[in-house]
Simulated scan of single mutants.
Amino acid sequence: MTQAEDFSAVGRQRVRTIWISDVHLGTRDCQAEKLADFLNGYECDQLYLVGDIIDGWRLRKSMYWPQSHTNVIRRLLTLSKRGTRVTYVTGNHDEFLRRYATFNIGNILLVDEAVHQTADGRKLLVIHGDQFDVITRCHRWLAFLGDHAYEFSLRLNRWLNYWRSRWGYGYWSLSGYLKHRVKKAVNFISEFEQALAHECRKRDLQGVVCGHIHHAEIREVNGISYHNCGDWVESCTALIEHWDGTITQYQWSEADPSPAVNPVTQSVPEVA
């Protein structure tokens, strides 16, 4: 059995690195139970929280914090206590933490960005990505408007999937469909990826790990390895680095939710 296949005595799979982003704790659409289940199935040397883990925008409007959200925080603290290095990379929804950048307590480091070196020697920029979103950076009122539109689509999505389940159909993502079908949304994602790839080339880095757009992806963009964590609102995805340096995409599954026995799937890179 190789090191990458090692399981602890409690049945957790041990990997080198895990990245998660866009959890949005403090919102009703956060899939906290699924995230806690995922985290309970793994141990890792390094854990990156790639922004928008806590949704400060929503919490400013109304307080929503069920026990399941506390359970996620408790699991993150437990991982830190047991030796996992936790790096919290701030995002735009938890931008209130940016004033405390470079804050370090125990095994938890708070930063605006980081550089991760994989086991095979590649250097990856780890950043939430809102800094490369023209709307978020230059037109904050549009960003807030877009956030309200996304929240509305999630509410509509809950209603649609309630009736789909009643009629025996599986989960279907309205916002995911729009991202793949609406031309402007597709163009926005492409421009976002290109901007991050350009930044990596400027810094002589081989790749990037980001979040922000809630669109999980592993692919090559102009010679740069682009990795997007996705989110824990709809897609419930994460990125995992194994002991040989390969990075794969994990997606939580209703059919087999236990990650210790549900191996991650390899995403096939696409050449832009």
Rank of each mutant, 00 (worst) to 15 (best):
S253H: 10
Q131C: 05
A197Q: 06
E113P: 00
E151Y: 08
N187A: 12
I224L: 01
V261F: 14
D130K: 01
N187P: 00
L196C: 04
R158K: 03
L59F: 09
G41N: 12
S235H: 15
W243C: 01
G26D: 10
R122W: 04
R12I: 13
G146H: 08
W19P: 02
G83R: 10
T248S: 13
Q31I: 06
E191Q: 12
H69P: 04
H212S: 01
V10Y: 12
A260H: 14
L109P: 01
G211E: 04
A4C: 09
E5Y: 06
S173A: 07
Q131S: 07
H242D: 05
P263A: 02
P259G: 08
W172N: 02
T84A: 13
S21A: 14
D112M: 01
V15H: 08
N228C: 07
H214E: 02
C236K: 05
L25P: 05
I224K: 02
H148R: 08
S267Q: 08
V264T: 15
V89M: 00
S267Y: 11
V86Q: 03
I127W: 08
H139D: 07
E95I: 10
R137S: 07
S21P: 07
L35Q: 10
S175Q: 04
L97V: 08
L145M: 06
A149R: 01
A185Q: 09
C30H: 01
E241Q: 03
G168A: 03
N262M: 09
A197R: 05
I105L: 11
A238W: 13
G176C: 09
N262Y: 15
Y177G: 02
I218W: 03
L145V: 03
G83V: 15
G230N: 01
G207L: 13
I54L: 08
A114W: 08
L77T: 06
F188N: 05
R140H: 07
H93A: 06
Q251A: 11
R85S: 11
N161M: 07
A260F: 15
V115K: 11
H128W: 01
Q31E: 15
H227A: 04
V23W: 02
L239H: 02
V209I: 15
W57G: 00
G170T: 10
G106I: 14
R164Q: 07
G26N: 06
A238H: 05
I240P: 05
T27H: 11
V86G: 02
Y171R: 03
F152V: 10
Q67M: 12
D29N: 15
E151I: 09
R203L: 14
S68I: 13
A260T: 14
S8V: 10
T78W: 12
S225T: 14
I240K: 03
I240F: 11
